[in-house]
Write a protein that binds this DNA or RNA. Structure first.
Length: 532
RNA sequence: GGUCCGUUCGUCUAGGGGUUAGGACUGCAGAUUUUCAUUCUGCCAACAGGGGUUCGAUUCCCCUACGGACUACCA
C-alpha cells in the first residue's frame, strides 16, 4: 500500500542523503512521441521539485536503428516543451560523454567483472543454434523457450566448454556474447514507487545478453552501468520496462551496487486514442491529430519515400497548454485546479500521485487547454500571430489594429492561426454574402435603412463602438425599423458571414469609411440581384 | 502460451468500509448576447462480474473476466 506520508518520507531521506538525479534516456531511432515527452516531463518535475538534477543520455547502443536527425529532434522537442536539462550530450556535464556509443570503452570491464565473479559467461552460439534451441523447446511444448539455467547447459558457452577451449575460441577471435547467469530459483523483489512491491521469480528471467558480438553493450548492461556512474537516484520510465526491472535489480546486486540502486517508478502507458495497445510512433496522422511534439520529416521504412508527421507545435498548440495536458495524463494534484504553469506543476508534483492505470488521449481536452492558454495571453502577443500571418500574405496592418482584432477574436479561436483565418474580412470587403441570412433577413426596408445609415456615417463620424450604435439606433428609429431586424443583414453586408464578434466593435475597427462603403456595395449588389 | 501490470461516468480523474460517489473535457438543454463563440446555470453519465471478511463493501482479500506490457546479440 502506498501512503503519501511514507513516500514523502522516502523523498526526504533521499534529499538528505544525496542529491536527486534523474535521467531521460531515449534512443535516437525516430521522433520522440508524446509518451516519451511525458516521461521526460515527470523526470523533470521530480528533479526540480526535489532540487535535484535532470540529465539526458542518448541510448544508441544499437547502431542498426540509428536514424539521422532523431537526436536533434529530441533536443528541439524538449526545448520547445520547456524541459530544461542540467546535463546532456549537447551541454556536457560532470559525467560526459552522454552518448552510450561514445562510452563504449567503459562497459566491457563491468561485463568482465561479472564473469570473474561467476555471474556472467561467454556464449558462442550462432543465431542458427539459438533458433534451433528455441525450435526444439517449442516442439517439446516448453511454455517459454529461453536461454536460462536449464538450457544453458546444452549450449556452447563457458559454463559447458572446457576452460582451454574457451580460451582458444576467444584467442581465435570467434564471435561471442556475454550473458548474465541468472540463478535458477530465486525471488527477485523491488519496491516500485508507483506500484509497490513487485515480485518476480528468477525462472521467468532469461540469461540476457549483456555484451553483443559487435562489442557494444545491450541496453540492460549499459543503462545499469551508466545510471550507477551518473549517480542516478530515481529511474522513472515507461511500464514497458517493468518486466526487465528484476533483471536490472540482479545486475545492481552482482555488480555490488545494490546499496545505491536507484528507486524505480514505472509510469502507466499512454494508450492509442482509438483501439487498444500502447501508443506507437506509427499511429501518427492516422488518428487525425498529432502524436509528436514537433513535425517530423522521415522516410517510409519499406518504400523509402519521404513522410511527414504532424506536430503539436506546427498545429498551433502552445507548449504550456501541451505540457499542462500531458502532465494530467497519469497524474493529478488531488485538487480541483486544472490549469498549471510549469512552475506550478513543479510545486504540485509528487510521484505518489501518479496513477497506476494507463491513460488514453482526449483530443477535445488538449484543444480546451489550448483555448485557455491562448485567452490568457495579452492582446499584444496575440496580435503578433496575426501580424506574422499578415506579413506572410503581404497584407499591411498597424499593430494597433491587429491588437484590436486580437482582442475581439480571442474568445473564439483555438489556435493562433485561427486569427488570420477568421479575420479575413477585416482586410478585405466580402465578395459573397451568406445566403441563408440574405434570404431570410434582407428586404427593401432593411436595405433602405442600412443605406441611410451608411450615408450618414462619414458626416456623423462616430468614434467609438457606442457612438456607432447610437447613430445606428437613431437612423433606424427614423426609418421605422427595429434594431433586431437589421443586425444580421448589417453583419452580412459588412463581413459576408452570419457569425462573428460583436458587430459594433467590428465596425469600429474597420472605420467609418470602410463600413459605409461596404454597406452601399452590399445594398447595390443585393438589390440588383433581387430584381434580376 | 508464460511472466508481470492494470480495471470508478464516453475520456482524464478525485475519493474511500456507512458519501446524494466529487471535479474537468465532451455531449445535451436553458439563460445572456445583434449572430456564432464566450460566459453562466442545469442535465445525461461510472465503482467489470462472482465469492468472501464485515452490522455494513464501490473501498480490504480471493477468484473470474477483460485490457495491456513484456517474452531479440531492439531500446
Amino acid at each position: 500500500m502506498r501512503s503519501a506520508a511514507v513516500w514523502r518520507h522516502y523523498e526526504l531521506l533521499f534529499l538528505m542523503e544525496r542529491e536527486v538525479r534523474v535521467r531521460f534516456a531515449p534512443s535516437p531511432t525516430g521522433p520522440l512521441h508524446i509518451g516519451g515527452v511525458r516521461t521526460a516531463l515527470y523526470n523533470y518535475l521530480l528533479a526540480r521539485k526535489l532540487g535535484g538534477k535532470m540529465l539526458l543520455r542518448i541510448e544508441d547502443t544499437d547502431q542498426n536503428r540509428f536514424v539521422p536527425g532523431a537526436e536533434q529532434y529530441i533536443q528541439d522537442s524538449l526545448a520547445w516543451c520547456g524541459i530544461e536539462l542540467d546535463e546532456s550530450p549537447w551541454k556536457g556535464g560532470p559525467h560526459a560523454p552522454y552518448r552510450q556509443s561514445e562510452r563504449k570503452p567503459m562497459y566491457m570491464q563491468y561485463a568482465l567483472q561479472l564473469i570473474d565473479s561467476g555471474h556472467a559467461y561467454y556464449a558462442f552460439d550462432t543465431p542458427e543454434e539459438l533458433d534451433a534451441m528455441r525450435a526444439r523447446l517449442t516442439a517439446a511444448k516448453v511454455p517459454n523457450p529461453q536461454y536460462n539455467a536449464i538450457t544453458r547447459s546444452q549450449m556452447r558457452n563457458s559454463t559447458t566448454l572446457p576452460e582451454d577451449e574457451v580460451k582458444q575460441l576467444l584467442d581465435a577471435g570467434t564471435p561471442y556474447v556475454i550473458r548474465l547467469k541468472v540463478p535458477r530459483k530465486e525471488e527477485i523483489r523491488f519496491n516500485d514507487l508507483i506500484r509497490g512491491w513487485v515480485v518476480v521469480h528468477s525462472s521467468a528471467v532469461d540469461d540476457k545478453v549483456l555484451m553483443k558480438s559487435d562489442g557494444m553493450p545491450t541496453y540492460h548492461l549499459a543503462n545499469i552501468v551508466d545510471d550507477h556512474l551518473m549517480e542516478i537516484t530515481h529511474v522513472i520510465r515507461g511500464e514497458e520496462w517493468l518486466p526487465s526491472a528484476p533483471l536490472h535489480v540482479l545486475l545492481y546486486r552482482y555488480l555490488g551496487w545494490e546499496s545505491t540502486m536507484p528507486q524505480f517508478a514505472h509510469l502507466p502507458l499512454l494508450l492509442k486514442p482509438d483501439g487498444t495497445g500502447k501508443l506507437s510512433k506509427r499511429d501518427g496522422d492516422r488518428l487525425g491529430f498529432p502524436v509528436f511534439p514537433l513535425e517530423w520529416h522521415g522516410t517510409d521504412a519499406e518504400t523509402g519515400a519521404p513522410t511527414v508527421s504532424s506536430g503539436y507545435r506546427e498545429s498551433g498548440y502552445l507548449p504550456d497548454a501541451f505540457i499542462n495536458f500531458l502532465a494530467f495524463l497519469g497524474w493529478n494534484p488531488g485538487t480541483q485546479q486544472e490549469l498549471f504553469s510549469m512552475d506550478e506543476l513543479i510545486e504540485a508534483f509528487s510521484i505518489d500521485r501518479v496513477s497506476k492505470s494507463p491513460a488514453r488521449f482526449d483530443q477535445h481536452k488538449v484543444r480546451w487547454y489550448n483555448e485557455q492558454y491562448l485567452r490568457a495571453k495579452p492582446n499584444a502577443e496575440l496580435a503578433q500571430y496575426l501580424l506574422d500571418a499578415l506579413h506572410e500574405h503581404g497584407v499591411d496592418c498597424t499593430r494597433e489594429k491587429a491588437e484590436q482584432i486580437a482582442s475581439v477574436m480571442k474568445e473564439r479561436v483555438t489556435f493562433p492561426q485561427d486569427f488570420w483565418q477568421e479575420a479575413q474580412y477585416f482586410f478585405q470587403a466580402p465578395e459573397s454574402y451568406d445566403e441563408q441570412v440574405i434570404s431570410k433577413k434582407w428586404n427593401a426596408a432593411t436595405a433602405n435603412a442600412l443605406a441611410a445609415f451608411a450615408r450618414e456615417l462619414p458626416t456623423a463620424a462616430p468614434s467609438t463602438p457606442d457612438e456607432i450604435k447610437a447613430l445606428l439606433t437613431q437612423v433606424l428609429e427614423r426609418e421605422g425599423v427595429k434594431l433586431g431586424q437589421v443586425m444580421q443583414a448589417l453583419r452580412v453586408a459588412i463581413t459576408g458571414a452570419a457569425a462573428g464578434p460583436d458587430l459594433m466593435e467590428t465596425m469600429h475597427i474597420l472605420g467609418n469609411e470602410d463600413i459605409s462603403q461596404r454597406i452601399l456595395t452590399a445594398v447595390e449588389r443585393l438589390s440588383t440581384r433581387a430584381t434580376a
